[in-house]
């Protein structure tokens, strides 16, 4: 992988993250907000995978000692990390959608700004 490729991937990740953040902050529909957050998480995953392909800086470390297959290990580490991100993303969406449905049952609107019960 080349320098340019890495920078391209990181820039794409930054863009994905920024757009996701925009969606999370500006969308009114709760489902859309949740999906926008997924974009942010995916951007993080992409970053790790790209960076660990390129820079296994932790290949030697006083605390962890030398590692076998340093380069492959680092790449696998990055992908494992992203797997965890994916799993967490799924859990967040599940609970988020459940909450939206529960709120909708009492007050039929999926829009966050209309969820404003005051006594």
């Amino acid at each position: 992988m080349t320098d340019g490729m890495l920078v391209g991937l990181l820039l794409f990740g930054a863009l994905l993250f920024a757009l996701g953040l925009y969606g999370a902050l500006a969308q009114r529909n709760a489902v859309r907000v949740l999906l926008a957050v997924e974009l942010m998480l995916l951007a993080g995953g992409l970053n790790v995978v790209a960076l660990t392909r390129f820079l296994p800086a932790g290949a030697e470390n006083r605390r962890l000692g030398p590692l076998p297959l340093a380069g492959d290990y680092a790449a696998a580490l990055g992908q494992t990390t992203t797997l965890f991100f994916l799993a967490v993303a799924a859990a967040e969406v599940a609970i988020g959608l459940a909450a939206v449905i529960a709120a909708y049952r009492l007050r039929p609107t999926p829009n966050v700004d209309e969820m404003d019960e005051r006594e």
Partner: peptide
Amino acid sequence: EAGQVQRYNA
């Protein structure tokens, strides 16, 4: 004080 959490986060 009301619920427009998103905007205030922003």
